[in-house]
């Protein structure tokens, strides 16, 4: 499941849509724009879309959701060590 989700690029999703028109093309566009506006890796968008695509089918048990969520989070930038907030500022 993880491997299959990993391979779901945006282009693949556009081509192979399991569900006709879902996620909606505007949702796909919005996710791509939201990711690129924050300078995140394009992988983030494709992994989020893969999650949504799976959610549409309802054959998406919780274990697989956790796995796909991990993939999404891994693609996002980490908190650099020098960015750790000063505890005194909290």
């Amino acid at each position: 499941m993880a491997h299959r989700a990993e391979q779901s690029t945006v282009t693949d999703i556009n081509k192979k849509q399991i569900i006709d028109g879902m996620p909606h093309i505007e949702v796909i566009k919005a996710i791509n724009e939201a990711v690129s506006s924050q300078d995140f890796e394009p992988q983030v968008a494709s992994r989020v879309l893969a999650y949504l695509e799976q959610a549409e089918t309802s054959e998406f048990p919780n274990r697989d959701r956790e796995q796909q969520l991990s993939l999404i989070l891994n693609a996002l930038p980490s908190l650099g060590m020098d960015e750790l907030p000063n505890i005194d500022d909290l």
Binding site: A30, A34, V35, V44, V48, I72, L73, L76, P77
Partner: peptide, 12 residues
């Protein structure tokens, strides 16, 4: 990372 994801979702 969770905060980043949430900001993407909210924006989208």
């Amino acid at each position: 990372r969770t905060d980043c994801l949430i900001s993407v979702i909210d924006d989208a």
